[in-house]
């Protein structure tokens, strides 16, 4: 196992070094294994040296930039693992969303009374309410509803409850 890993880790070394010393390195690993002197620490040593040689090949500036980027990624991942997740956004109990609220509901069964609009716009069966854009994390909001009747149009200010997907008592 260690023999295989040690050989494999030598691939981390720069190509030139690898090609130059591959056979000889393999023999050294075999010698160490035969003498029962191959340790995990030596596998780490092979990996670390290979990476160090590669970084040296990149030059001081690019190598430093790479190490800095790796350190930054490690820091971000570590912080992400250690810090508790933030509280999820609590649903607002009552928020006005005028820009996302104008919805037209067609009602054809009822007509405005002669005195004006009916007190409550009742959705007909099969009518579909769509709020664009969909508010996220909001369950209750106010909106302006334009109801087009067969002989006229009425506007209502309504309170919507998305959890019930229906109309709550409204106001004019």
């Amino acid at each position: 196992m260690k023999l295989r890993i040690a050989r494999w880790l030598f691939r981390l070394a720069p190509t030139q070094t690898r090609h130059r010393y591959r056979g000889d390195f393999g023999m050294l690993i075999d010698d160490l294994a035969d003498a029962r002197e191959l340790r995990w620490g030596q596998c780490v040593n092979i990996a670390a040296t290979g990476l160090r040689l590669r970084l040296r090949g990149l030059g001081r500036r690019r190598g430093g930039a790479l190490i800095g980027a790796l350190a930054l990624v490690t820091l971000v991942l570590s912080l992400g693992a250690w810090l508790p997740p933030g509280n999820p956004a609590q649903p607002t109990r009552k928020i006005s969303v005028p820009s996302a609220s104008t919805t037209t509901v067609l009602v054809i069964r009822r007509t405005p009374t002669t005195a004006g609009c009916p007190p409550s716009p009742v959705s007909p069966s099969g009518a579909r309410l769509q709020v664009l854009p969909e508010p996220k994390g909001i369950t209750t909001f106010r909106s302006t509803v334009t109801v087009v009747y067969t002989d006229g149009t009425c506007e209502y200010t309504a309170k919507w409850n998305l959890s019930h997907a229906g109309l709550l008592p409204n106001g004019r």
Partner: peptide, 14 residues
């Protein structure tokens, strides 16, 4: 010396 260290140094020396 670790095997990696040895061949790292040998390559530099060569």
């Amino acid at each position: 010396l670790g095997p990696g260290t040895l061949y790292g140094c040998l390559s530099t020396l060569e």
